[in-house]
Structures are given as C-alpha cells and as structure tokens.
Design a protein around this nucleic acid. Structure first.
Length: 406
DNA sequence: GCAATTGCATGATTT
DNA sequence: AAAATCATGCAATTG
C-alpha cells in the first residue's frame, strides 16, 4: 500500500497520508483564477504547512496571510463558536474581533455552507440547539448505526436526518503564547460531545453531559505540537474524523473506548509546530463538518470506491448506475450535464461532466473531468468519492475519502 | 501526425 | 443460467 507509482507531487513529505497542501493550494488557485475568494490566498510554494522543522520559527512574513499561514491561534474558533449571535443568515454575523483572515475564512465558510446554528453569547455551557431542534426533522426512517459502520471503510449512506447537532462548540482554547516563541509544546484538551444517534436517539439533551473543556499548556524547547483531543461523536462521523486526522498528522495515537454508551475516541497527536495553522484550519473544518453531519445537512447520495481506471489519468469515474439514476439529474440526451460540487474541505467548487455511455441494453454513468479532484486529494485505487446533496438546489458536495486500513 | 480526450465494446464479475 | 453491472482496453475523434 502507500504511494506506488504516484509521482510525489509538490507538497513534499513522503508520508503516504500527508495532505498535499501545495496541491490543494494549487487547486484553489486554479479554481479561483481571479481570486474571487474573500480572503487572500498565499502564494504557491509559499511556506508550506508541511515544511520540515525549522529551528527558527520566529520570523514569519507579516503579510499576506492565508491558507497556510494563519498564525492566529485556534482561540479564534473559540470566540467564533461562543460569541457568534444566533443568526440564520451569516451576513451580519461578524462583530467579533478575529484576525482578518480568520474572519474572511469563517465568513466564507459559513456563507458557503449556509451554516446557521450558533450558540448564543454567554451560553457556552447550555445547549443552544435544544429549542427548535427536534421537531423540524424528519422522523420517518431511523437508521441504526452498528459498530460495523466504521469497521468497514464505508461512511454508510444513511446519515441520520434527525440527529441533533453537537451539544457544544468545538472549543479549542489556545493559550496566549506569542507567535514568535521559537519552540514550544502545547497541550490542548478538547472534548466534543454528540449523542450517539443509534442508541441514544430519544435522550433529551438535558441528560447529556455538558461540554467540558480544560486545557493546559507550557513552553518547552521543542518543535512539536502535542495535542490531545477527545472526540465523542456520532458514529457516522467517526470514520471521517479519524481519516482526516490521519491525513493531517504524521503521528496518530488513538484508541477507542465506550463510555456511557457512547463511543469515544481519544487521540494524541504530535506534529510540527509550523503546522499550527494547518491544524487550526483542520479543526475548523471538523467543527463545521460535524455540525453539518449532525444536523443532517449532509446526506450521502452516492459513494464509489475508486478503481484503478477511475484514478488513472483519463479523469473519469464510473458511477454506480443505481445511485446515479436515483440521485443525480436525469440524463435524457447524450449531452453531458455539468454538475457543480462544492468540495467538502476546500473552498473549491468542482465542475464535473456527468454523462452516460450506452452499454449493451443499458447505460454506464460517467463522471468526467475528475483529474484535478483526484490529484488534489491524492486519491488512489481503494479510496472513495462521496457525493452529498447540497442545500443549494442543483449543487452537490463532494468529498475524497481515503481508505483507512493501511 | 500526435497527444489528449471521448465513445464504445468486450470480458469479468455480480445479482 | 441468464441478465445486469461494471472495469478496462482500445478505436475514433478532436484540437
């Protein structure tokens, strides 16, 4: 396993699960040639998030700050999550004092994701989602999640549509450490609680434990960021979360345990301190995505395990006929249909050509122009593409899912 | 003419 | 056993 014949595209590393940040960045540049993003992009081949450890972290370029160079700490997320007003449109949601880039990023992401649930100020230990949570959801089919959901590499295509959002924000408290401290160790403890939909679906939020946070930090002479995260998440999210963690961090120590009928994953991460910004981005993505998973906003409509020919350089992916016909727009004519799919992780909208081939008396459904997507996410045979419905009509959300067994 | 892309057929595999 | 589905090779087409 691991990268066989793949050319090691820029982003360096050698670690098979390393996110290719230069490739990601290149894709963002490609997809936004006129820089329509509301935040400045860092230059290509800039200071990479995965750069080897440097002993002098002190001198960081003041501007531009962007995708890989957001030196603001993750406390921005804390303030975002805790102080944001409950608002259904994000246009007036920015009164807090984030660094400009964070504000841009979060603003962009929140708008992009139509992400509208916020804890009210001063309510960080209550359950802000409690009030209008349960009635609006469809209570029709109740998927039950067994443990095999994460043993197999499948993020089962039945997201619970009526799972409540997580009880608390992903509140990573970042201690106040000046950015130019050359080396340090940071310990972050973080706990996210969501209910485990299968077993606890009728439990009221009152009975669930409150969000706990405690954090400690100290500076030592080291370039390593130590991170302790404790996730208690819905089982359908676990696969995604752990896959993301594996991709983002060189070293991952994780163990599963059951606690109060819920599945808890304890994670210890070690990573170079220069990747602090990457870490922050990642945590924010996890935060947003978990909320969206739990609110039922993500619903899988198609999942395809990629074959060799899917990831070969022809740039087309054969889609399973049943799912394609069920959930993608009907193809009457031979003309391809352009499908716009927001990347689940990146601020990128992919435009795929969706078409079919006549095949015997049937059809084969093809997703075309997928080369960049596959390259950007470093997808190989055995990985998967997952397509979600998008609240925006006619659009979709797409995710590259790396295989977890290695 | 060539490289890249597109369209189709065939054989393998699954239902 | 037959039919359906799909992975893949290659021919045809395009730029």
């Amino acid at each position: 396993m691991g990268g066989d014949g793949r050319p090691s595209d820029g982003g360096g590393g050698g670690h098979p699960h390393q996110f290719q940040y230069q490739a990601l960045l290149a894709a963002v540049h490609t997809q936004n040639p006129n820089n329509t993003l509301p935040f400045p992009l860092p230059p290509l081949n800039g200071p990479g998030a995965d750069a080897p450890p440097t002993n002098s972290v002190a001198r960081q370029p003041p501007t531009p700050r962007g995708f890989t160079d957001w030196s603001a700490s993750t406390s921005a997320f804390t303030s975002l999550a805790v102080q944001s007003p409950p608002s259904s449109n994000a246009t007036n949601a920015y009164h807090y004092s984030l660094s400009p880039c964070y504000a841009f990023w979060t603003h962009y992401m929140l708008n992009k994701n139509a992400y509208s649930y916020y804890p009210a100020p001063n309510q960080e230990h209550t359950h802000p989602f409690y009030h209008d949570n349960n009635q609006a959801k469809d209570l029709g089919s109740v998927p039950s999640f067994g443990f095999e959901s994460f043993n197999t590499a499948s993020l089962a295509p039945n997201m619970s549509a009526h799972m409540p959002p997580m009880e608390g924000p992903l509140s990573v408290k970042e201690p106040e450490i000046p950015e130019d401290v050359p080396a340090r160790v940071v310990r972050i403890k973080d706990e996210m609680e969501t209910r485990n939909g299968g077993e606890l679906k009728f439990e009221t939020l009152d009975t669930l434990p409150e969000l706990k946070q405690d954090h400690e930090s100290r500076a030592t002479v080291s370039n390593t960021l130590y991170l302790h995260i404790r996730f208690t998440v819905h089982i359908s999210v676990l696969h995604w979360v752990s896959a993301q963690l594996v991709h983002h961090y060189r070293k991952l120590i994780a163990k599963w345990q059951m606690k109060d009928g819920k599945l808890v994953r304890e994670i210890q991460l070690r990573r170079n301190i220069t990747s602090h910004n990457e870490h922050a981005i990642f945590l924010f993505c996890v935060h947003v995505n978990i909320q969206k998973f739990n609110s039922g906003e993500y619903q899988v409509i198609l999942r395809k395990e990629l074959t060799k020919s899917d990831v070969a350089n022809v740039g087309r992916i054969v889609l399973p006929k049943k799912d394609a016909e069920a959930s993608l727009p009907p193809l009457c004519e031979r003309d391809p249909v352009i499908l716009q799919m927001d990347d689940m992780v990146l601020p990128v909208t992919w435009k795929f050509k969706y078409r079919f081939w006549p095949n015997n008396k049937s059809r084969m459904y093809i997703l075309d122009s997928t080369t960049e997507f596959v390259k950007t996410h470093g997808l190989q045979a055995g990985d998967a593409i997952v397509i979600y419905k998008n609240p925006v009509p006619g659009k979709y959300i797409v995710r590259g899912e790396k295989a977890t067994n290695h």
